[in-house]
Simulated scan of single mutants.
Amino acid sequence: MHRLQPTPLVFSALLLLVLASLRDRRRWWRTLKRLRFLLLALVFVYGWSTPGLRLVAWLWAPTEEGLRSGALQAMRLVGMLASLHCLLAGLGHERIFAGLYTLAAPLALFGAWRERCALRLVLTMDYAEALLAAPQVLRSNWRAWLDGDDGAPVGPVRLTVLPLSGWQRGLCAALLAAIGLILTGVGW
Rank of each mutant, 00 (worst) to 15 (best):
H2Y: 07
R3H: 13
L4C: 12
T7S: 10
S12D: 15
S12E: 15
A13H: 04
L16T: 02
A20C: 01
A20F: 06
R27W: 01
W28L: 01
R34V: 09
L35W: 13
R36P: 04
L40R: 11
L42I: 13
L42S: 15
V43H: 02
V43G: 01
F44I: 08
Y46W: 03
W48G: 12
W48V: 11
S49K: 13
W58M: 12
W58L: 15
T63V: 07
R68L: 08
L72D: 00
Q73G: 05
V78H: 01
A82L: 01
H85A: 14
L88D: 07
A89D: 08
G90H: 05
L91W: 08
R95M: 02
I96V: 15
L100S: 07
Y101L: 13
T102H: 12
L103M: 13
A104T: 01
A112M: 11
A112G: 00
W113P: 05
L119P: 01
L119R: 15
R120N: 10
L123E: 11
M125E: 07
D126S: 14
D126H: 15
D126M: 09
Y127W: 09
A128G: 09
A130V: 06
L131W: 03
L132P: 01
P135T: 03
R139F: 13
S140H: 12
N141D: 14
A144Y: 04
A144M: 05
W145K: 02
L146N: 04
D147V: 08
G151V: 02
A152M: 00
P153G: 06
P153Y: 04
R158S: 09
R158K: 11
L164V: 10
C172M: 12
G180Q: 06
L181A: 12
I182G: 03
V186A: 15
V186D: 07
